[in-house]
Amino acid sequence: MPAAAHASLDTILAGLAAAGEVTRLRLLVLLAEVELTVSELVAILGQSQPRVSRHLKLLAESGLVTRHREGAWAFFRLADRGAAAGLARDAIARIDPNDPVIAADRARLVGIREQRAAIAARYFASQAADWDRVRSLHAPEAEVEACIADIIGDGHFHAVLDLGTGTGRMLELLAPRADRAVGIDQSPAMLNVARARLEQANLRNVQLRQGDIHALPVERNAYDIVIVHQVLHYLDEPGRALREAARTLCAGGRLIVVDFAPHELESLREDHAHRRLGFAREDIESFMRDAGLEVLAHHDLAPPKGVREKLTVSIWVGRDRRVISDVHVLNSEVA
């Protein structure tokens, strides 16, 4: 995590006042582990929904926790930025993990995580046959992921954004190399799958948000790496989505697009809701240039031999044209 920012006396006092109550301190410890809904926190703490909601409201107003909506649900997590964020983490680090109250809360949290994993597993099982068929038509996922890793190269990143995160696999690969990582998906069911997967990987620097890829609920000018993996073929306006993605890049940041080359498998449109039957190289490169990006590279990964219906996976890389030294004059804007 980045170093904590200095804060005013008023901010520190407000944070201390918000954290200085036993239930709210228990909430901070839980939300440092994983993002949780009000109903999940009610089940863990054994308190009423109005009481838990009131505590969460105070913590959010003080900047110690953040809240984001996902359909009918609201998820809370410990703040990872802002003047008060470091205060909460410092306090949590000083709590004895063997304290009986904290230990009991964490034991009940294990049950919540097991419930999430079971729900995600049921959904994934219901979709697995369709996904397996599509995967069998193109290069193995390991080959695609190796190519992405080679493109990204070595090093550590400040922030990574995964658009249409699906099962969260790209976050699982990239989040360990970032200070923070954010995944966006329109589907609450897919976010449940991703949440369970990332919790099993013990990745605490990841945030998952429900959102529209055409109107992203994230900061502008903030991400070193933005990846759009097997998403564009579902969209009516892929160029618009890439323009929106480009706005989230920091100076010199890179946009990686993974999708299919042009093909004639109408069954993917009929059975899997694909809107586009792949993209020509020049189409995506044109979208990138229209978004103000420099096109850096293009790669094609051939399908397995012996497969009658074949899909070529294409990977494009674009880069924000601004130089790194310009970043200090940019004001981050919330989408």
Rank of each mutant, 00 (worst) to 15 (best):
Pro140Tyr: 00
Met190Gln: 14
Cys250Pro: 05
Glu309Trp: 00
Glu294Arg: 15
Ala215Gln: 13
Val206Arg: 09
His274Met: 13
Phe157Ile: 03
Ala79Asn: 04
Arg321Asn: 12
Ile324His: 11
Phe279Thr: 02
His229Asn: 15
Asn202Thr: 11
Ser8Arg: 10
Arg135His: 13
Ala245Cys: 03
Asp179Ile: 06
Leu242Trp: 10
Ala222Trp: 09
Val323Ala: 14
Thr37Leu: 04
Glu172Asp: 13
Arg281Pro: 02
Ala280Glu: 15
Ala93Asn: 09
Gly168Met: 09
Gly71Gln: 03
Gln115Arg: 13
Leu58Trp: 10
Ala88Cys: 02
Ala139Asp: 07
Gln210Leu: 14
Pro97Met: 05
Leu216Tyr: 09
Ile227Ala: 03
Arg94Ile: 03
Leu64Ile: 01
Leu87Asn: 04
Ala335Pro: 14
Val327Lys: 09
Ala107Ile: 05
Gly253Ser: 03
Arg177Leu: 03
Leu78Pro: 02
Ile92Phe: 01
Glu143Cys: 04
Ala103Val: 04
Leu31Met: 02
Glu143Lys: 10
Pro97Arg: 04
Arg106Lys: 15
Ala178Tyr: 10
Tyr234Gln: 02
Arg275Ser: 08
Phe287Gly: 02
Ile256Leu: 14
His214Phe: 12
Leu301His: 06
Asp90Arg: 11
Leu45Ile: 10
Ala302Ile: 12
Ile227Trp: 06
Ala3Cys: 07
Leu31Cys: 00
Val182Lys: 08
Ile256Gln: 08
Gly20Pro: 05
Val307Lys: 00
Ser62Ile: 01
Asp283Thr: 08
Leu58Phe: 11
Leu16Ile: 15
His6Val: 12
Gly15Gln: 03
